[in-house]
Design a protein around this nucleic acid. Structure first.
Length: 160
DNA sequence: TAGGCGATGGTCT
DNA sequence: GACCATCGCCTAC
C-alpha cells in the first residue's frame, strides 16, 4: 500500500447467511462490492468516523468477506506514525479503524482489486499458529467464533 | 487494568 | 429516527 504495510495478524469472517454481516439483507449501494467476485476490496465508514477494510472471499455471489482487524507494521512505519500522530508502534495498526488510518485507506479504495496498485497482497511465508475466538464489536450472531488471529502476537486489537 | 461513554455521519427502516 | 464490524479519553479500583 504505497510503501506502507505489514503482516496481517487478525481478521474476522462475514457471510451473507450471517446476521452480523453487511450483506445479510441483500445488495445495497454500500455493500455492492461484497456481491461481486472475490479478490476485491470493500471499504465502509464505521461509526461515522473510521474506515474499515474487507477482502471479498469465496465465490461470486456468496457475499462473504474478511474484515482486516490488525497488522504488525513492517514497512513505512514513520509515515504511519505521522498519519496516526503516534509514537507507539504497537497501537499503530491494532484495530480496524486504526489500520486504515495508518495505511491511508479510504472509500476511494472501495472496489479495487487486491492486485491493483496501490494495494498489494502477498502470501505468508511459513506456517503459523492461529487462535480463534468470537468477533468484536457486533450485536448479532455474537457467538460465532469467526475471529482469527496470529497466536501470541503483540499487535492484536485484543488478546484471544 | 477494566469499564463507561461521547464523538460523528452514513445507511437503512 | 435508530442503528452501528470504532476509538480514545476519562474515571475507578
Amino acid at each position: 500500500m504505497n510503501g506502507v504495510g505489514g503482516i496481517i495478524v487478525e481478521v474476522e469472517a462475514y457471510h451473507h447467511t450471517d446476521p452480523a454481516a453487511h450483506s445479510f439483507r441483500g445488495p445495497t449501494p454500500r455493500n455492492m462490492v461484497m456481491f461481486g467476485p472475490p479478490g476485491f476490496v470493500y471499504v465502509y465508514r464505521s461509526y461515522g468516523i473510521h474506515w474499515c477494510v474487507n477482502f471479498v472471499c469465496e465465490k461470486e455471489g456468496s457475499a462473504s468477506a474478511v474484515l482486516i482487524r490488525a497488522l504488525q507494521p513492517t514497512h513505512g512505519i514513520p509515515a504511519m506514525r505521522r498519519r496516526r500522530r503516534l509514537h507507539d508502534e504497537r497501537s499503530l495498526c491494532s484495530g480496524p479503524g486504526k489500520l486504515t488510518e495508518a495505511l491511508g485507506i479510504t472509500d476511494k479504495h472501495n472496489g479495487l482489486a487486491l492486485d491493483t496498485l496501490p494495494i498489494a497482497l502477498h502470501a505468508r511465508i511459513g506456517k503459523v499458529e492461529v487462535a480463534t475466538g468470537v468477533r468484536i464489536g457486533i450485536t448479532k450472531a455474537v457467538e460465532l467464533p469467526w475471529r482469527y488471529g496470529l497466536k501470541g502476537s503483540k499487535f492484536l486489537s485484543k488478546p484471544f
